[in-house]
Design a protein around this nucleic acid. Sequence first.
DNA 1: CCCAATTCCGAGTAACAATATCGGGATCGC
DNA 2: GCGATCCCGATATTGTTACTCGGAATTGGG
Lengths: 146, 146
Amino acid sequence: MKLSTKGKYGVKALFELAMNEGAGPISLRTIAERQGLSEHYLEQLAAPLRRAGIITAVRGAQGGYMLARPASQITVGDVIRVLEGPVGYTDCSTEGEPDPECASTCPVHGVWERVTQEIIKVIDSITLQDLVEQALADRGNPMYHI
Amino acid sequence: MKLSTKGKYGVKALFELAMNEGAGPISLRTIAERQGLSEHYLEQLAAPLRRAGIITAVRGAQGGYMLARPASQITVGDVIRVLEGPVGYTDCSTEGEPDPECASTCPVHGVWERVTQEIIKVIDSITLQDLVEQALADRGNPMYHI
DNA sequence: CCCAATTCCGAGTAACAATATCGGGATCGC
DNA sequence: GCGATCCCGATATTGTTACTCGGAATTGGG
């Protein structure tokens, strides 16, 4: 029912890369420190993201990762799919992997499909660029509670 | 990220009760047979649903369960919340249990909140009555694929 | 009044996933 | 060459999932 840390950390990490777009590679150590995550764990997330062509790696000292394409062309959904697999509210209503029997016999299946579609709509509509712009706007316009 | 069997089976079971609304109690054995579920496992789902006042039990022979209120007044969301806990796409964006630190510091938090709201919108808008009507409509109007 | 059907209750469990941690090898700028 | 970094695979711990099992309490029908 809930997103695991893979998806959450992955998007946070890529947001960090998007914030530093064009400024050369950023090391996992830097990302881990800035976002408060485990460096070794981030390695596990970086590998599939690199293989999926979302980020590129620069090895060696002063190396790190960069976005493989502009932040405006990477959606939150792209990242989640790589790290969590196909999106779906249930495993019988997962995009690209429909369960034909469930779809034709289960009277509730339509509900799960509708929820899945709404989830997809949101995560596919938000790019890393959007997150950066929102963060910059918030930074200039902070909310002071109480 | 995905609904567990608890929520899925629970809604299927309650759909079965809704289909037989007003026809006296239905036993778990009957539900299990009709929906192809484990009877013992359904017991575990029935207990919290009863305690939450969604279904009522009739003990003894010829006993079973009935909806505690009309099917038109029970939403899919009601059932899911009882069986899976508060709704949320992440544990930091779960309804009624906001993570204040995450909400104010995480640049991605707004995305999770938006997804959570969309999920809630769908599951709270569909009642058991809707499912029954849809099932009856489908039954009179079956889709023949191929 | 007895019996079978049923709800009710709590424990146990096997398999799997989540969330890391660890060690070491490959690569590269300085 | 050296230290920073990516890269890869193994391991560990913990929690969750999806059940299973055994038996007690309750009640309508014969």
